[in-house]
């Protein structure tokens, strides 16, 4: 078990203890909620895990790095950024997927672009965003998010 996992579990345990001391009923409600979201995300977790297995098992690293690695350059970053903007997977699960790509030859920039566009840009939620906030704000936010995601990715690639 690594340090991060220990810290996260520690926070959860301490949080739960405080919750139970303060208000048992509310604590149980939180636990039930946790259980429900866990079950809800479970099939996606397995799907991502299997995809990662297949990806690393079947696609040779030089193929991955050709499309999203260092030699793919700016085009590769744009490509992965666009994929992230269009994909609709839970943000929590984008990190293991990103880690597996990184392990298999993707560049830091490409992985950073993927995570940033995936979380910041919501093509599926765009109609709702337009309805609530108006076309101007929604389109500006999503459009500029793509640009800053690419800038963030390029800087990440330069410093890491």
């Amino acid at each position: 078990m690594n340090v991060t996992a220990i810290i996260i579990n520690g926070i959860a345990v301490v949080g739960l203890l405080i919750a139970f001391v303060k208000d048992g009923k509310k604590a149980i409600k939180s636990l039930k909620m946790a259980g429900r979201s866990f079950i809800k995300i479970l099939p996606m977790v397995f799907i991502i895990i299997i995809i990662i297995g297949l990806l690393l098992g079947f696609v040779p690293p030089d193929q991955i790095s050709r499309f999203v690695g260092e030699q793919s350059g700016f085009g590769g970053i744009l490509l992965v950024g666009a994929a992230g903007a269009l994909m609709h997977i839970p943000a929590l699960l984008s990190f293991p997927l990103a880690a597996s790509l990184l392990e298999d030859g993707a560049s830091v920039s490409a992985v950073a672009a993927f995570i940033t566009t995936l979380t910041m840009i919501g093509t599926i939620t765009l109609p709702l965003e337009i309805k609530e906030l108006g076309k101007k704000i929604a389109l500006l936010r999503n459009g500029l998010s793509f640009i800053i995601a690419i800038i963030i990715a390029l800087i990440m690639g330069a410093i890491l």
């Binding site: 996992a5 345990v13 098992g57």
Partner: peptide, 29 residues
């Protein structure tokens, strides 16, 4: 290769996902 990779990622997820869900639940309530 496929099974051992999937298994490694499964373990890493299993170590943190329940705790993350608990933290989410606590905040939500």
């Amino acid at each position: 290769a496929v099974i051992s990779t999937s298994w490694d990622f499964f373990i890493e997820m299993a170590l943190i996902l329940p705790a993350v869900m608990v933290i989410l639940g606590l905040f939500a309530v």
